[in-house]
Design a protein around this nucleic acid. Structure first.
Length: 284
DNA sequence: CCGTTAACCTGAGAGC
DNA sequence: TGCTCTCAGGTTAACG
């Protein structure tokens, strides 16, 4: 489900809702997430106070102070929500309305507020980290995120050397640049007017610069619109984002290119089993 | 080292 | 109505 903008939106709402709150208790209904939840997960987090909430690419970080953290990755279908007594918030694409609590795997009880982790496909996971070394080490596996200054022309030029990978898979490779997923890779390449099939080694500096620029602007704009809600993305309070109304190519198969004067039709294909949308006339 | 594929999961929607 | 099949916003082990 979530790429950088959606995770950012969730992180911002967590800052407003659970920051500085104390965990009273935790209920674990299903430990079998992508990685099995450690046995003492409940005990180890009990009575901890959330000092801060941070985000690193697609990871949400609960910072408890003293280099004690819990990292959460939402996978494809993970959502966090705070149930309200007034309205039903858990009605995502994947949830059977008759059994809305079926995939509520972890419930964190704060004073006054409960935070529910729901994840039908269970590709998401929590990881508890207890020291600075492990924390820093955890993120060495991923490259700079697309909004970082480190993700610049010099960095990119160095990374593409001697490589034949196509630009779409390159943008999706979190070791190269982190935070971009399938929706935004499609949108960024459309705005850059570059075909997703192009080999990275053959891209010009101008083209690389466009990719960097549009990565930043596209992700930032998506954040401004509250992320993209295709099927089940919801913010913590239950509202969806609106960036899907801004899509130029994603999910727009057989529709007209959004650029005025362009007669192109958006075509769908697959690259490494991921759906890929392009305007044949705009993207070369 | 590099690039690609399969696998991990559940459920909605399409087609028959 | 119901069955089967495909697809979904992510990651990564395993393979050639």
């Amino acid at each position: 489900m979530p790429e950088l903008p959606e995770v950012e939106v969730v992180t911002r709402s967590l800052k407003k809702t659970v920051k500085n709150r104390k965990i009273i208790k935790i209920i674990v209904n299903n430990r079998n997430l992508r990685f099995k939840l450690q046995k003492n997960f409940k005990q180890i987090l009990k009575n901890k106070i959330v000092k801060d909430i941070k985000r690193k690419s697609k990871y949400i970080i609960f910072d408890f102070g003293n280099h004690f953290y819990t990292i959460l990755h939402l996978g494809m279908s993970g959502t966090l929500h705070i149930p309200s007594k007034k309205k039903v918030t858990n009605l995502s694409f994947y949830n059977n309305p008759n059994m809305p609590k079926k995939h509520n795997h972890v419930i964190i009880f704060f004073d006054k507020i409960n935070l529910v982790y729901n994840d039908p496909r269970r590709f998401g996971y929590f990881k508890v980290i207890k020291n600075k070394h492990d924390f820093d080490n955890y993120f060495t596996r991923i490259g700079p995120e697309a909004l970082d200054k480190e993700f610049n022309l010099k960095y990119l030029k160095n990374k593409i050397k001697y490589r034949k990978k196509n630009i779409k898979n390159f943008l999706l490779d979190q070791k190269i640049v982190s935070g971009i997923g399938n929706i935004y890779a499609n949108e960024i390449l459309y705005k850059s007017q570059i075909s997703p099939m192009r080999s990275v080694g053959k891209l010009s500096s101008t083209e690389l610069y466009k990719i960097i620029k549009f990565s930043r602007t596209t992700l930032k704009e998506a954040i401004k619109f509250g992320g993209s809600s295709i099927k089940d993305f919801k913010s913590v309070s239950g509202g969806g984002g609106n960036f899907q109304t801004k899509f130029n190519v994603y999910n727009r198969e057989n529709q007209r290119c959004t650029k005025s004067k362009c007669k192109g039709i958006i075509k769908k294909s697959y690259i490494s089993n991921r759906s890929t949308f392009i305007c044949n006339l705009c993207q070369i």
